[in-house]
Amino acid sequence: MQTKSAGIAKFDWVRASPWLCTFGLFVIWEASVWMFGIPYYILPAPTQIGYAMYEFSGALWFNSIQTLWTTLLGFAMAIVFGLLLGLFIGWDKRIYAGLYPLMIGFNSIPKIAVVPILVLWFGAGWLPAVLTAFLISFFPIVVNVATGLATIEPEMEDVLRALGAKKLDVMVKVGIPRSLPYFFGALKVAITLAFIGSVLSETIAANSGIGHMMLTAQANFEVPLVFACLIALAVEGIGMYAIMAGLEQRMTGWAHRSGFNR
């Protein structure tokens, strides 16, 4: 950027693009708030939110960490359970046919309706948050793993079965590696869902976490702090997504060989 003519020619727009867009969004936001004279209790400007973040940095940090590990715990449960259930469902057409409608039905239930039940069973606190994160995020993992298994090429299955391969051989050699790109793709969706689940539960019944902090801030009319909580959540979400995407790239690079979006 310093040597201007050469710098512009070599400037990597793809790498810079996310930062520029984010920065641009905040600039437009800030400008709009000042230009239209929007009061801070309706929509605070990014600078006001920034100040709230600084002012309450201790509490914000504590609650962010709380929400992060609650989410990750639920997410980890979703990975283990989702992977096992996905393999089980994808194992056989009959199991697939039998359990799929149940899965759809379960996933259609708004999780906000489930939280009170969880609170009833386990009491208010971190456990309902972990469970909500788990319940909301395992579905895409199950569906994707099962789909990966269900779409094995029939020729490939014939090749192996004509060699005397058992169902387990076909699964281990072909089915599971084949469903990994689907699995890692699902993790990216699932991690963001897990955040939604844990925060949802925290806003209903918890003593800590970003969700709880937002609720308190709202009650105290600290609107900039509410927004500060939202931004903290967004940052956590992006961070975890990036980790999942990196993992996907590392584990299943072979599945991303097309130059389609380059």
Partner: peptide
């Protein structure tokens, strides 16, 4: 399944 046969098809179905 006979367990001694080799097969090849129109589609080579290699594992990527």
């Amino acid at each position: 399944p006979v367990s001694i046969a080799g097969m090849a098809f129109q589609n080579p179905v290699m594992l990527p």
